[in-house]
């Protein structure tokens, strides 16, 4: 509470590709910090009181939907749940998440990327009998532990932090990235998905898949949901090696 009224300097990388002739530049805004202020609140104050053209994306503003990932003082993170009080010198520098198409300022198009990723890994239950299931009858049973394990891997919110922090992805555009591996591991674990290891091999059995990962751990370090990326990549690798 003692920090009430402190001045914050928020620097934002401004660039609107929709405007002809616009060029990227850092712009500084000064606002007064309030108790409990998050970057979500700060950015809205900037938009409402200083510059109504600043672009950024927030939806749930509760760390659940994954839309507000950006680079905050050098680190990818969810802006909605980052408190300004975390930055002792009151200096906050915001950049859009790299690795995605820029829409403008802090807003990037992660949606198209994630849709393609899901199409590529066919991120859904594969079961040719699924359409014949009679939903009036008791559902197929599942071990309670397995259900919990699947949920632990399904907590990914497709925010894109892992992609932005991935050195392999930067060098190899076709690299699937941790978000895709995590999803595949999730389906590989799910007894309802009838795909075999060789089916998964088709998807990730090459250098753009699990064998391309250089294990630099960016995904694991910056995942806002603390998902066990490296363990899952290692698991998929072992699985794929057994196919060969």
């Amino acid at each position: 509470m003692e920090q009430e009224g402190r001045k914050l300097t928020i620097q934002i990388l401004r660039f609107n590709p929709q405007l002809e002739g616009d060029t990227p530049r850092m712009v500084s805004y000064e606002i007064t910090e309030a108790p409990g202020m998050t970057i979500f609140i700060a950015l809205n104050e900037i938009r409402e009181k200083h510059d109504s053209s600043v672009q950024f994306d927030f939806i749930c503003r509760a760390g659940i939907c994954g839309s507000c990932a950006m680079i905050i003082n050098g680190t990818p993170d969810l802006a909605c749940r980052t408190l300004t009080s975390k930055f002792k010198d009151g200096q906050i520098k915001l950049l859009p998440l790299p690795g995605f198409k820029l829409i403008g300022d802090l807003s990037v198009d992660s949606g198209t990327f994630m849709r393609h990723m899901n199409e590529r890994i066919e991120g859904w239950i594969h079961d040719i009998k699924a359409d014949e299931v009679d939903f009036n009858k008791l559902e197929e049973r599942m071990d309670p532990d397995v259900a919990e394990e699947i949920y632990e891997l399904e907590r990914c919110v497709e925010c894109g932090c892992c992609i932005s922090a991935c050195a392999t992805k930067r060098m190899k555009d076709g690299f699937l990235g941790a978000v895709g591996f995590m999803k595949l591991a999730r389906y590989a674990l799910d007894p309802r998905d009838k795909r075999s290891d060789s089916d998964f091999y088709e998807i990730v059995g090459d250098d753009n898949g699990v064998f391309g990962c250089m294990s630099l751990l960016g995904c694991e370090d910056y995942c806002p949901k603390d998902l066990p990326h490296q363990t899952q990549i290692a698991y998929l690798r072992r699985k794929m090696l057994s196919v060969k």
């Binding site: 699924a130 299931v133 197929e140 071990d143 949920y151 799910d190 309802r192």
Partner: peptide, 11 residues
């Protein structure tokens, strides 16, 4: 139906 589509309902 959602269960058959992959929701890992707690059991």
């Amino acid at each position: 139906e959602l269960s058959s589509w992959g929701v890992p309902w707690s059991r």
